[in-house]
């Protein structure tokens, strides 16, 4: 979206005022309402669809495959993003892909993938496919919420064979219809716009246009974790920011992330 100079300066003056006056009157920590559906793809182990009030929408599918983790040393979670209207090798898609694979990097503290291990030899590998149907601004936050919802409703076949299969060579066998909940909690990603001395969560597309900088903060299990990044949101207003804002941004996320989590779980 390209805005006029007068529009931009009106928005910039409003957003950098103290307290910030957002064009839709939101508080700095307030998200736009979202709608989530889960479990609608019977061919997938988990699925979710999330729609923001501006019409941005993404769909996530989680599929599983049994692999021999003694041979295949890759991460047990593989994420891939497809953005409608963008080529797979475009800069936007690649940057979101690389960020997400870092967010979903298995880690004992934040994303414990030991639950995916079936036996001493075999594990489930999860394929998380993200389809962004439409987005008017950076969809990273929305995607992370969708992945969270999809993973938390993912069910996997129940193992009936023994755990120790190194001694006795056997392939894992599964119960005919019983499923177990995976209950994997993936990190949430927050995007903040920095305008003047203000930090604004979930910036709308017109707020994007006048942000001095953007800040991506990842949060998991009650605390802020990596990756934390800055991201330039436009070409016109982008500039450096006071390091103290970084601390403020992290604090803002720490204060409100739990509310988001509870809303996603309710």
């Amino acid at each position: 979206m390209s805005l006029s100079v007068a529009e931009k300066s009106y928005l910039y003056d409003s957003l950098s005022a103290f307290p910030a006056i957002r064009p839709d009157g939101r508080k700095p920590y307030q998200f736009r309402p979202i709608e989530i559906s889960t479990d609608f793809l019977p061919n997938s182990n988990g699925s979710s669809r999330i729609i923001a009030s501006d019409g941005s929408e993404c769909i996530v599918s989680v599929k599983s495959k049994v692999i021999d983790h003694t041979i295949d040393n890759d991460d047990l979670i593989k994420v891939e993003v497809d953005i409608a209207g963008q080529r797979d090798d475009s800069a936007v898609v690649e940057s979101i892909n690389s960020l997400l694979s870092k967010v979903l990097k298995p880690n004992a503290d934040t994303l414990d993938t030991s639950k995916l291990q079936l036996t001493k030899k075999y594990s489930f590998k999860l394929y998380v496919d993200v389809l962004v149907l439409s987005s008017y601004s950076n969809p990273i936050s929305l995607i992370s919420f969708a992945i969270y919802s999809a993973l938390s409703t993912t069910t996997l076949p129940k193992l009936v064979s023994g755990f120790d299969d190194l001694e006795v060579e056997e392939l894992p066998t599964f119960h005919d219809y019983d499923l177990v909940n995976l209950e994997l909690k993936s990190p949430l990603v927050f995007l903040l716009a920095l305008v003047g001395d203000n930090l604004l969560i979930d910036p709308a597309s017109n707020e994007y246009e006048v942000a001095n900088n953007g800040l991506i903060v990842t949060w998991c299990n009650g605390k802020v974790t990596g990756p934390i990044r800055t991201i330039s949101l436009n070409n016109f207003y982008s500039k450096g920011f006071d390091a103290s804002l970084l601390g403020k941004g992290i604090k803002l996320v720490e204060e409100h992330a739990n509310d988001v989590l509870q809303a996603l779980e309710s």
Binding site: P33, E35, F40, R49, V260, A263
Partner: peptide, 16 residues
């Protein structure tokens, strides 16, 4: 409902 975000949830369907 939380002041931070409001979420409408639907389960088991892709409905409108």
């Amino acid at each position: 409902m939380s002041e931070v975000i409001s979420v409408v949830k639907r389960r088991g369907g892709f409905q409108y």
